[in-house]
Design a protein around this nucleic acid. Structure first.
Lengths: 342, 342
DNA sequence: CCTTGGCACTCGAAAGTTCCGAGTGCCAGT
DNA sequence: ACTGGCACTCGGAACTTTCGAGTGCCAAGG
């Protein structure tokens, strides 16, 4: 029983590997030819029947070979494969490609491109989430006597800008005063905590100025919440969809549609995990019915201990999981490193 | 001769319209049935033969109907059709959809979405080019004693940021001094002219400070040129590619690939024209061999007199030109208006 | 001279047919 | 427990047939 079980798993592994390579149903004969399992096709057939019984493989039609089911891929990913590590050359390519980035946006853009290129799948990268970021600096610029530009700079280098209009001319001195006060109150504060800190600010000013101050404070608060809530996403490698196979309407269209809906992508990527853990969602396991032939490989990135955001790829269920997972993990690690350095 | 010519053009128009609607070759009989040209199929056949002779239509194979050639579409667009104006409801939808935008990036994002939605094609919007924009404000923020953040704010609300490292601790007073000097020198200057203005700045400071000042100035100049040269682009509606028809490899793949290459998109969109003029590039007319079955409808947007940037759509040659052109033109106008107001 | 009805012809697409062999399940033998 | 053998299945490739929309051309008519 022990030995048989082992062999059955070998057979499943072989089926998955061959099917991923050929995209064609795998028969017992072909299997024995290509892998040297030391048994005859007839034996393999028995194992296959058992595997089918257990729900790991299926026949597209009678008298055809077998293909893995989602459960089959699941077992393969969990038990039968090891994440492939990248070659030295690939690692080098990654670092050199990411090293050229000039700012945060550029890091993300490059990461998407890179990920799409090495996995040859559609890549998705969530911009680092700013929930944990803090206020670095607040600037108030007078654009015209009645028009102010608020600039919020966060600890991880993002900038949010807002315009405030005021019915009367604004006193420069008041602005300077407000600027320094805001900065002393807010500097270093988490965006999420800033609301409470700002509460008392208007009272510090002369009653005549309070209307203006209050409107600036309100706008600033809006900027905070917008920034916290914003979940930007970059997508790349859509051209790789053409490799999905032929059933266009069923495979490609839903993915293209999902790519436009960032809310959907966020749900697909799922919660950010730390870069050690890879999330793999296979076929029907993902939360969208239309994407039942699609798998997602994702992981968090950011600091070692906690993830800032998620990145990953979307591809057909019959993808090469070991390589893809290796690439996703590697890219996540390198990006984390780049972000930590800067 | 006069009359004949007119009818031939009618026939061509009818063929284009029907083919766009059905995507199937059009025969003489069907034409006569659907449009009431007051002549018999036989006559139409003669005209068709002539049109084919002149290169406006072609037969996919003997004993099939005719389809327009690129030249046919060209003639149709230039002479046989009028740009369709949008319905009141559509116009309303556009304004209300664009009105909600909070900043420049948001305007662009919304525009792409909108354009993709109403044309049901792939939409492309170039971010407003900043070549003509000027410096509104420069801010220098001390992040740590040896680390400075430069923030450049331009007249049309874009923000560019750069980090400058310095081997020694930086004097706050010097920074304040430099900040005000830079602003007085640069405020209102065109980005393109700023280079010359900055030349003399380091000399204004004590020799010991010049190294720092020079490095800040250099970084700033880099930011200027980056900002001027940057040609960002937003893309949307890729899911509409699924409506291209079946020849996937030939029609969809090249477009998807082009969408990832912003340099290519820029060339596709072409030079910005003013919002009055629509550029239509049909099939082989565009500069990429692989996109020979693809047309581009684009126009400039920005102020009335001069275009800031270009927007447009990409779709199959057999698109509904009058509607598409109408939509592109309308969106360009409304966006221009929004930008002018803010 | 343009238009039209008539007619023979063409040829792609759809539907039908045949054929082949990879693949299967099962069973008896080792 | 494994294997060789065997009868059976059935999808896909290849070929054939059929069908009809569409064509070009011509002679007759306004």
């Amino acid at each position: 029983m022990r030995v048989l079980d082992d062999r059955k798993l070998d057979v499943l592994r072989a089926i998955v590997e061959d099917y991923v390579a050929t995209h064609e149903p795998i028969g017992s004969k072909a299997l024995v030819d290509r892998h040297n399992l030391g048994v005859s096709p007839a034996t393999v057939r028995n194992d296959m029947a058992a595997l089918e019984e257990e729900g790991y493989i299926t026949q597209p039609h009678t008298s055809a070979g077998r293909i893995p089911t989602d459960a089959g891929y699941r077992l393969f990913v969990d038990k039968l494969s090891t994440v492939k590590t990248l070659s030295v050359a690939e690692k080098k390519a990654i670092t050199s490609f990411l090293a050229g980035a000039v700012d945060l946006d550029d890091v993300v853009r490059r990461t998407v491109r890179l990920l799409a290129q090495i996995t040859r799948q559609v890549a998705i990268v969530q911009y680092p989430s700013l929930n944990r970021s803090s206020v670095r600096h607040i600037e108030i610029v007078t654009m015209s006597p009645r028009r102010l530009l608020l600039v919020l700079i966060t600890s991880n280098g993002r900038v949010e800008q807002r315009i405030v209009e005021h019915p009367h001319d604004v006193d420069e001195q008041l602005i300077a005063d407000l600027r320094s006060r805001l900065n002393s109150v807010l500097a270093g504060q988490r965006l999420t905590d800033a609301t409470t800190s700002l509460g008392g600010v208007p009272e510090l000013f002369a009653p005549g100025d309070r209307a203006l101050v209050a409107s600036i404070v309100t706008t600033l608060l809006e900027a905070f919440t917008d920034e916290v809530g914003e979940q930007r996403i970059a997508v790349g490698g859509a051209a790789n969809l053409t490799r999905y196979g032929d059933d266009f309407e069923r495979n490609v269209k839903p993915v293209l549609e999902a790519l436009e809906e960032h809310v959907i992508l966020l749900r697909l990527l799922g919660e950010a995990t730390n870069p050690q853990t890879l999330t793999v969602r296979i076929g029907h396991e993902n939360p969208f019915e239309e994407l039942a032939t699609t798998s997602v490989v994702a992981t968090g990135y950011g600091s070692k201990s906690e993830a800032l955001a998620t990145l990953g790829i979307v591809g057909p269920t019959h993808m090469d999981y070991p390589s893809t997972m290796g690439a996703v993990r590697a890219v996540a690690r390198y990006v984390s490193q780049i972000l930590a350095d800067s």
